[in-house]
Design a protein around this nucleic acid. Structure first.
Lengths: 139, 139
DNA sequence: GGTGTATAGTTACCTAGGTAACTATAATAT
DNA sequence: ATATTATAGTTACCTAGGTAACTATACACC
């Protein structure tokens, strides 16, 4: 694609394949990958607002609203009262924590399996490249 | 994210940011990035079927159907009759070719700008990594 | 030549990203 | 104290990916 040996083309294809396979794996614990990202964040950082999640994941607020609603309907998160009435502070419920723990195993196994065989310096160079490009996109 | 220094997490974030910015750029020529991919393919490979496009882009058939319909409504592609009545062979119209040429400039400028400053060996390592990971996902 | 199978494409419906415009509340400035 | 501005979140609607099930045509085989 284009004159960069399909660099960006391959990146997009990989992302699609990756989320597809990750969704297949996460189906074992009845989660979608976007739900997993929020459950992961809530476990690591404790109770949060939707804007905090939106900022961390770099996803727009309406998208977060929708996914959080699904998690709430499924009883994996709960609202906690706060001073600022605009905010919606949420945290994992007890079933939410259990789901996190199960999903974590699935995701770690999946990512580890995918990573094995990849040269360490290639992994580092790729991470460096992604961070570089992400930064450039912000300008 | 997880124990790989957020490798996959950064990749997903980058892909989202990338398509977002590319869509912004392609708005200049009134295209979305998924439409651009098909226009690009048709210009390079000539008249094609939807399955050929689907295979090349690694995107499911229903997705291709939808995007192709939009391109046809906009008059950028046209159907050409063929022997196999199941197939839908399409090609760029004359306005489609012009749109390709305009979009090509926009995309090349965007990608070039993004690439400048990236070390050559990092670019190569990243491409190698993406191809490696894509291959592993197919298993 | 009829039957079973494979292929091309579509339809319906799901998640997931985006923007624009809106409401409600908080913070700030005058 | 009031008016303005900023922030949190939602709603409506768009593109874009996916799966499952379907139709119609082509192919293969007996």
């Amino acid at each position: 694609m284009s004159f960069h040996n399909g660099f960006f083309h391959h990146n997009l294809q990989f992302s699609r394949s990756f989320t597809k396979k990750l969704n297949e794996q996460l189906a074992k614990v009845d989660l979608f990958h976007s739900q997993w990202l929020i459950v992961y964040y809530l476990y690591q950082y404790g109770c949060s607002t939707l804007v905090e999640i939106s900022t961390y994941l770099d996803v727009e607020k309406p998208t977060v609203t929708r996914t959080v609603n699904r998690l709430e309907e499924r009883g994996l998160i709960e609202q906690i009262p706060g001073k600022d009435k605009r905010e919606r502070r949420i945290q994992l419920t007890e079933p939410g924590v259990r789901t996190y723990q199960e999903a974590k195993k699935v995701v770690e196994e999946f990512e580890l399996q995918l990573m094995t065989g990849l040269a360490e310096e290639d992994r580092e160079a790729t991470l460096r490249t992604l961070l570089f490009l992400k930064e450039k996109l912000k300008q």
